[in-house]
Design a protein around this nucleic acid. Structure first.
Lengths: 159, 159
DNA sequence: AATGCAGTTGCAATATATATGCAGCAACGT
DNA sequence: ACGTTGCTGCATATATATTGCAACTGCATT
């Protein structure tokens, strides 16, 4: 999406499309729909994955160069606290993504691929084990590390 | 353990007690048994939990003030790579602990308690779900977030 | 026990990620 | 249209982690 289009859409504020959904979420939470925020949400929607703050800012700046890095930090923090975004720590930085249906993360430690598993697929199995230890798990946002299918095959071939 | 005792034990290098076990591990890996390394291992053994680098260094410096912070960083990195230590990322820092029997971590997001679950207790449940997604999990060192028993009760009482 | 060398260390400088104080500006309700 | 409150940009601060280099030390060899 080119700057002008984005700006127009933001100015319009007509609640259409992806922006529209996001805008509605912000409104519901009493957060103002500002260009930095909407652009962050749009970038994450387009990306389809989680991004760390620096790449996120880079992409936001492609469209709106005036958006400051510190505002990306402030906004992802605020939006995470309000549940608009999910965050995952990894490699000394924090990755942020849209908080859609509850899910957990699968990180391939070899290639860095970050996949998702619907929460309801994983929760029952975990909950039953953990309750035995007196622990109650968060039902979303867990990060599990391992190998994706591709890397498993790759390392097998290498042998 | 007082400085003198530790120093004596190190000098002795007789492979007795906790130090002895640790020293053997280092030797097997071709790592030199130096005061910083052995003290780090000893502190972690005494602590019984995982520590982040700063507290770890603080405790090491209690016994050997000359041990530099950067060496704690270098050594935990090296020893992690060699499998002597386990690491867990959390809150923008990395926690290190002795790599004993394979286990996963349970982090209480309220009080910060870091508990452990033996890997064989959790692995089957996880593996069966994840294999359905073509993912193969690491069989140790997973970090799961939630609430410990105490905090669950506390928040229930608060209501 | 003395010796040589590679692995280690301490220090200081540096990189990287994240947080914040403040003055101006803009979004939203009225 | 307008004032208030929240948001932003900039500059700066802090905290965690990394690295270059010269000096040193553990360990194998003699």
């Amino acid at each position: 999406m080119k700057p002008k289009d984005a700006a127009t859409a933001f100015a319009r504020g007509d609640g259409s499309g992806v922006n529209g959904d996001m805008e509605k979420i912000l409104i519901r939470l009493g957060l103002r729909r500002t260009i930095p925020r909407l652009t962050i949400l749009e970038v994450l929607a387009e990306a389809g994955t989680h991004l760390s703050v620096l790449p996120l800012h880079r992409r936001v700046a492609d469209t709106f160069p005036m958006v400051n890095l510190s505002m990306v930090y402030r906004n992802v923090t605020v939006m995470s606290e309000h549940g608009v975004l999910h965050s995952v720590e990894h490699g000394g930085e924090t990755l942020f993504g849209l908080a859609e249906t509850p899910h957990h993360h699968l990180l391939c430690e070899k290639c860095g691929l970050l996949a998702e598993v619907p929460a309801d697929r994983l929760d029952p199995a975990l909950a039953s084990v953990l309750s035995g230890v007196g622990f109650e798990m968060d039902s979303a946002g867990q990060l599990l590390r391992g190998r994706c299918r591709r890397c498993r095959h790759a390392s097998r071939d290498a042998r």
